[in-house]
Design a protein around this nucleic acid. Sequence first.
DNA 1: GTGAAAGCGCTAACAT
DNA 2: ATGTTAGCGCTTTCAC
Lengths: 345, 345
Amino acid sequence: MNAAGRPPTIYDVARLAGVAPSTVSRAFSRPGRVSSQMAARVQAAANELGYRANAAARALQTGRTATIGLVVSDVTNPVHFGIIRGVEEAASQAGYTMLLADAQESEPHERTAVERLLPGVDGVVLASSRMSDRAIRAVAKQRPLVVLNRVVPGSRSVVSDTEAGVRSALAHLHGLGHRSVTYLAGPEASWADGRRWRALLDLGPEFGLRTARVASSAPTVSGGLAAARDVLRLRPTAVIAYNDLLGIGLLRGLAEAEVRVPEQISVVGFDNIFGSDFCTPALTTVAAPLRAIGTEAFWELHRLIDRQPLRTHPVLTLPTQLVVRDSTGVRAGSGSRRRKAAEGT
Amino acid sequence: MNAAGRPPTIYDVARLAGVAPSTVSRAFSRPGRVSSQMAARVQAAANELGYRANAAARALQTGRTATIGLVVSDVTNPVHFGIIRGVEEAASQAGYTMLLADAQESEPHERTAVERLLPGVDGVVLASSRMSDRAIRAVAKQRPLVVLNRVVPGSRSVVSDTEAGVRSALAHLHGLGHRSVTYLAGPEASWADGRRWRALLDLGPEFGLRTARVASSAPTVSGGLAAARDVLRLRPTAVIAYNDLLGIGLLRGLAEAEVRVPEQISVVGFDNIFGSDFCTPALTTVAAPLRAIGTEAFWELHRLIDRQPLRTHPVLTLPTQLVVRDSTGVRAGSGSRRRKAAEGT
DNA sequence: GTGAAAGCGCTAACAT
DNA sequence: ATGTTAGCGCTTTCAC
């Protein structure tokens, strides 16, 4: 507090230290441009007064806020836990504050959220965005942008290695004697969904696996539960779900229909979220390095904001790993005696 | 963009509309103080230019940011899903942006997070804070503040009705023939933990229930898993866990120890989080109206920020509800024939 | 290396 | 009801 009972400003610090306000400013924002003794003197005065730079004033002058926005498609999807933690960790390390916005699995909601937060941030991370490429490019035109779990031409992104993940899952199922696999699909607007289905289609033949596809109403537990009927209609021996939420829901739906997993149907999910280890049976899943995706995304954004040199390739791909649990087993009537086969990649 | 290639300001709008900059300012921030025709004229000009108020400039002048901070003890605890959604929903309805900070279940972390976000917000909501009353009061001295799931003398807060919740759980267990109940405790720094244990102690006798207490290392699934050994040492017939995370962990620990639930031990949790319905067995739990807690907290904060009249009582208590699932059953050897008894309050 | 002064975009007296 | 004007606290030329 200064004499007027308001927080101290650089003027207060300058007066106490017997220097010019501009020097105080430099001491804080351009540490190199001030002599070390001057720096010490200013620091001492600032500490004595409890000075803290006013972010609004700095932002007004520089146009930078030291804040980045993270928009997630759905905060209540545990897949975002790791991403949130990762981004936040890297951001605070770099002196940035993270603003989190929730798109509530709705494209209009997401647009509104982005629009609201855009003016107040130096850059944006879009996680599992449901917006169109066009809309994303429009955002990128306004602020530095990094996209997660998606590739948008012209934008930088961080993704997990879908192909390797799908391949390991298929290898695993093939090893268990399965001859076909049904994909329980995610949202139309999800890039990852398209990518996973594509990989299934491309790689299935490699393992002699036929493929089928069933839609879901929402990438949630209840969506999976509701989809069980449609899945059963195809009488599959193995299902790969777009994500763990759907996988867990499907498990429940199958249990309700008294279909035994994995004896009658094997189920594989994606992401390895909270809960995939304690549902029944525990879910076999393709784990993504979520936290690393978050930190990498932030640093990439940071380089963009600071106009630092970038990698040549705009897409950073991080490895996935198959986590084998109890929801996958040998195909019913396959004659194989092995309960659990090779675990893929 | 204006002539200089920068975003339009009130000066650009004023020039186009042929009015004074202050009139433009008023048209946006004090809609009542301009004539309706003037408002229309300014709006038209603003739309034509694509004018958006500069938040930093406004904040610099007024000291208000139209942003509030929400600090949660742990974003990866699903108990916060509803709270986050609730706060965010109300905030955006009121034209506020929500800044989310994660304390990562650590008191120092929480202090840092609060300190970082405090200067940039008009008010703060602290959810399940692990800070001391003293530290919280220090925050309240700097900004309007609402506390969740906790009562801090001198501060406004929103809590769920612990006593009623505990009472309904005890009535349920008593009805199932249990004669004692063991409490699996949460973090020392948790106010809710103290409150729940206190209620158990106070209300136990009412139902002829003896009480015991076992500590946990962390209010997480792994904390509950690890605590199973200590719990078993007491040979309880019923356990009430501080929260569902611990409850789910305990369930797993008991399963590993081949103790059957609910046949040998009944388990009750708190919160009714994501996952408590699909763990095995599904967890009986005291559900809190999380989303409502969030929205109420925001509106209370809003009143604080706007210096509007407040309720006389600083603590708003919201009702809880017992959700009976499969983790509770009649006491082993109790002779009772009922599988499921009355469900309490 | 340090100081002086202008101005970022907005709001709020004050004046008319 | 609208215009004029003076800052809010900071950074950034431009001098020295």
